[in-house]
Simulated scan of single mutants.
Amino acid sequence: MSVPVTIRDIRPADHAAWLTLWQGYLTFYKVSLPDSVTAMTWARIIDPVCPVFTRVATIDDAVIGFSTCIIHPRTWAVEPACYLEDLYVDETRRGIGAGRALIDDLLAMGRRDRWTCLYWHTNADNATARRLYDHFAPADGFVRYRLAITAPQ
């Protein structure tokens, strides 16, 4: 018998659970961020005015995954788009449908709030995630360019 995954808004009381998952996410991508960036990310997530928001996947009230998104205006449409910046499920809880439930939840929000699209990117070699993502849509073939911006000296 499977245990149902529930999706809900993140709450301030979820900070410790989110932080554990966040560190797992950063470890997966082999990234180290300053504590100040993690603190600012959390502050943005729980700020109701900020366009960044997080939904969490839970089982029996335990947070096992999250999706963090940014709603933004578009130049090719009147309605906004939703960029899914971060999606992570605890490695010990993968394969039970939490990732799919998080994306399905965002799609339902998008229909309700009239977003033009939900989009994200992942590493080309992230085979586990791509198996899930390919159930929703094929990769669109766009190539990402990323330029670091540094402040003038």
Rank of each mutant, 00 (worst) to 15 (best):
M1R: 12
P4N: 02
P4W: 00
P4A: 03
V5C: 08
T6M: 07
I7W: 06
I7Q: 06
R8H: 01
P12C: 00
A13V: 07
W18E: 05
T20Y: 03
Q23D: 13
L26R: 15
L26Q: 15
Y29Q: 05
V31T: 13
L33I: 00
M40F: 15
M40L: 15
A43D: 07
A43S: 13
I45V: 10
I46F: 07
D47H: 08
D47M: 02
F53Q: 12
V63I: 03
V63H: 05
V63D: 01
G65E: 13
S67K: 00
R74V: 09
A77P: 02
A77L: 06
E79Q: 14
C82V: 12
C82Y: 03
Y83E: 10
D86W: 01
Y88N: 07
V89M: 05
E91M: 08
E91L: 07
E91K: 14
R94C: 00
G97E: 03
A98G: 10
G99T: 08
R100E: 11
L102A: 05
I103T: 06
D105F: 09
D105H: 13
L106E: 13
L107Y: 13
M109W: 09
R111I: 04
D113G: 04
R114Q: 15
H121C: 03
H121D: 11
H121Y: 09
T122E: 04
N123Q: 14
D125V: 11
T128F: 07
R130D: 15
L132G: 14
H135Y: 00
P138C: 10
F142Y: 10
R144F: 12
L147R: 15
L147Y: 15
L147D: 02
I149W: 01
T150M: 01
